[in-house]
Write a protein that binds this DNA or RNA. Sequence first.
RNA 1: UGGGGCGUAGCCAAGUGGUAAGGCACCGGGUUUUGGUCCCGGCAUCCGGAGGUUCGAAUCCUCCCGCCCCAGCCA
Length: 566
Amino acid sequence: MSSETSNAPERTDFIRDIVAADLREGRVAGVVTRFPPEPNGYLHIGHTKAICINFGIAEDFGGRCHLRFDDTNPAKEEQEYIDAIERDIRWLGFDWGGHLYHASSYFEQLYEWAVYLVEAGKAYVDDQTAEEIRAHRGTPTEPGRPSPWRDRPADESLDLFARMRAGEFPDGSRVLRARIDMASPNMHLRDPVLYRILHAEHPRTGDAWCIYPMYDFAHGQSDAIEGITHSLCSLEFKDHRPLYDWFIENLPVPSAPHQYEFARLNITHTVLSKRFLLRLVNEGHVRGWDDPRMPTISALRRRGFPAEGLRDFATMVGVAKADNVAEVEMLEHCVRDVLNRKAPRRFGVLDPLKVVIEDYPEGKVEEMDVPNNPEDPSAGSRKVPFSREVWIERDDFMEDPPRKFFRLAPGREVRLRAAYFVTCREVVKDGDRRIVELRCTYDPATRGGDAPDGRRPKATLHWVSAAHGVPAEVRLYTHLFRSPHPGAGDADVFDDLDPGSERVLARCVVEPSLAELRVGETVQFERLGYFCPDPESAPGALVFNRTLTLKDTWAKLQAQGRQDKV
RNA sequence: UGGGGCGUAGCCAAGUGGUAAGGCACCGGGUUUUGGUCCCGGCAUCCGGAGGUUCGAAUCCUCCCGCCCCAGCCA
């Protein structure tokens, strides 16, 4: 029945262990989880972990996962975010089927339950100001003191609460509070606020309400209404659990869900806080929520990261309770791993240097057959035009090469990938001694890249025919933050922003087939990295984003060399 | 000097009394028409520290140290 006996190296974790035990021992008949975003910003890579855990566990145990918007604070929530969230989760590869819910759909029920608590003497309307409430709450080491309104008769609270709903009072003038324990060592149990007055237009309920439930009063009950069995959230909600349980126990809810907490994800060179990401957007540090340097799912998609790589990463970091900061290299590894297997190879030259093959017939054009993916023979091959003048990467030539540089140099022979061996005969410079062109000769016997005599050049270069290449803009991206731990210690996060995290190269040239590449497709520019068309790309004005570079041993050697000189 | 959570290699993370999985990163070596991929090898005598129980402990007990969360009418 279940796949518990599967020989697959199933990764398990403490939550899956709990779920399995609940199922085995009959505490639950089936598994129902939920992913509960608040539509007050875009989803980021941290949410990916929560999404993968919730949808993944439901999938593993044959249950289901709901998508529920925790839309209880209209002051911060917007339709744009709601749309983006749905789009991003679908893109990640998850499906909530017909199970799309909104906490706002439960407002009437929640209101009735609030009344129920008041009638039971377990909640009261408090007329204190926010400041007074704060002052009475005490501190972690000192107990709080009761509000002067704490023992107000239930009838009076009932009347006031109804009038709060009716709109008789201004924002902030009164709140509904649970009557629990002002001296509790758990701050969340010191008579938590249940409802506040907010005369704000709600994306879904419009102006039907001017009082809105707080997270604690809405979340668990929403879980109960939907029959959620395992309510999974991050560790900072651990202290809320007694309150979560208190509502489940003191209200006539239809089911009794349980909350479990796991550690949230952190990543080096990255900041994952909606508040901060919103500032980056609003203050113009990036192109928007989906700027390729942002950690949002929308941005990673625009950057060319495949959803599969994000899911693999979520699996790789695991589910545990210890604070953690995953190295961004782990994410990059997962992305490269997927792309290496699936991305078609193409030729693109970022910093073009002209090569003229003197003995190659003028006007002649050959269609060279180039494999689309050496990792995947079924990907076939394509024709790439070759002619007398080609562009190569400026970095692939050195007039006076150091020992370990085995690319093109004066007098040296290299292979032009899937084309011919060429030998550099002359270096042409302009008046400023800048190299403007290389004159080479070629070996006609090496067509396709193999020499009949078994000669094997130490380097293979990518190229683009000058007569056929298509101009393109390429945007290179690196980590938004220089520091592995932005804002660590007393540093200002903004000081860690790397102004060089985006570099735009305006004069690149790519092979003709790339003009047809569509947004959403990521290819490998051989020897350079993975690239994808940016949504701003247009026919005649191609724009590519660099997803990631390939691993680059040569660059590493150069970096080490520079260090050695110091 | 309140409550809660957590401490296994540079990073993530298995392990729950029988003598430290795996991945990332890193360092070698091989293959290679991508200095990519792939393959092979190396990388914790030790599990925050100190005691104790036991034939035997990362796993049990005691004390200590450190880090994170909680004082929104945010979620």
